[in-house]
Design a protein around this nucleic acid. Structure first.
Length: 153
DNA sequence: GCCAACGTTGGC
DNA sequence: GCCAACGTTGGC
């Protein structure tokens, strides 16, 4: 079982949107970066835990947690000509892009901000702080525990 | 809105 | 395969 950090722009899809999904779980789609795709496809498994990170917003940071309820499967949006995620080079038997399903787990009372993460010595090795632009990234068990500790209950 | 740090594309 | 030009991400 592993830990991950997934980024989303809250204007597009926030932790509240995930929490409000009628089925209790939502499809994490639209990943169009190969490094993120490879992690999603090859390493993210059902039952893994996920930090839901809000990016490109007023207070960027970890907003809550989710659990992976379905491992990687072909992202339907890549075949949808109306979608901004449409990819003409994808075929049904050779899909380029993948998504997973997430189920809402918890919302932090306050976002654990990027600023706070940066100011925490125990988290100085976090991938988030090393390679800011990657939208799916691994989190160590220690980092997971530490950030949960920092989140207000 | 700016810009740094990437990632992708395409000519050669 | 190199690299310049261009596009995107995401913090500020």
């Amino acid at each position: 079982m592993n830990y991950w950090l997934f980024k989303s722009e809250p204007d597009e899809y926030s932790i509240n949107d995930l929490a409000a999904e009628p089925s209790g779980s939502g499809c994490w789609d639209g990943i169009r970066n190969y490094q993120a795709r490879n992690i999603l496809r090859d390493q993210v498994r059902e039952g893994d835990f996920v930090f839901f990170y809000h990016s490109s917003c007023k207070v960027p940071g970890v907003a809550g947690t989710a659990i992976v309820t379905r491992g990687a499967y072909s992202d339907p949006a890549q075949f949808d000509k109306q979608s901004k995620y449409y990819d003409e080079k994808s075929t049904a038997d050779k899909p380029r892009w993948f998504c997973v399903d997430l189920s809402f787990k918890s919302r932090f009372k306050e976002v654990v901000s990027l600023k706070t993460l940066k100011a925490t010595p125990a988290l100085s090795e976090m991938m988030l702080l090393k390679q800011g632009r990657l939208s799916v990234q691994p989190v160590t068990a220690d980092e997971w525990r530490k950030i949960l500790q920092m989140a207000k209950p």
